[in-house]
């Protein structure tokens, strides 16, 4: 039996790695990918607590998180495509004006 603290430790380390990517990378697509990584790390936490407390709420919340993530990625990639078509740049420090 794997102890609960191992799952939470793994989740915390994945979250921190993703956070570092979000804060430091310059390519906006990789920033979005690191955001996905952080959301997945949170999902591990939810599912682990759902298993150890024998309560289904965690799994259901994880399903909702996955669904909202899919929606978020679709909209974010649409924004990126529209922006790149307009300005021709993927650098996140140059995306400071969203007005078309």
């Amino acid at each position: 039996m794997v102890p609960l603290s191992w799952y939470i430790a793994l989740s915390a380390s994945l979250f921190v790695i993703g956070l570092y990517g979000v804060l430091s990378r310059r390519n906006v697509l990789i920033v979005l990918m690191c955001l996905e990584l952080m959301l997945s790390a949170v999902n591990i936490n939810l599912v682990a607590f759902s298993f150890f407390l024998s309560h289904l709420g965690g799994q259901i919340f994880a399903i909702f998180v996955i669904t909202v993530t899919a929606a978020e990625v679709a909209v974010a990639l649409a924004i990126v495509i529209a922006y790149v078509r307009h300005k021709g740049s993927l650098k996140i420090d140059e995306i400071s004006i969203m007005k078309g």
Binding site: S24, R25, R26, N27, V28, L29, L32, M33, V73, L77, V80, I81, V84, G88, S89, L90, K91, I92, D93
Partner: peptide, 19 residues
């Protein structure tokens, strides 16, 4: 993601990895 990466021109953005 891979579809969008391949659709966009990314060469100039990959020159510097970090802010």
């Amino acid at each position: 993601f891979i579809f969008v990466i391949m659709m966009l021109e990314i060469r100039q953005a990959t020159l510097e990895r970090f802010l």
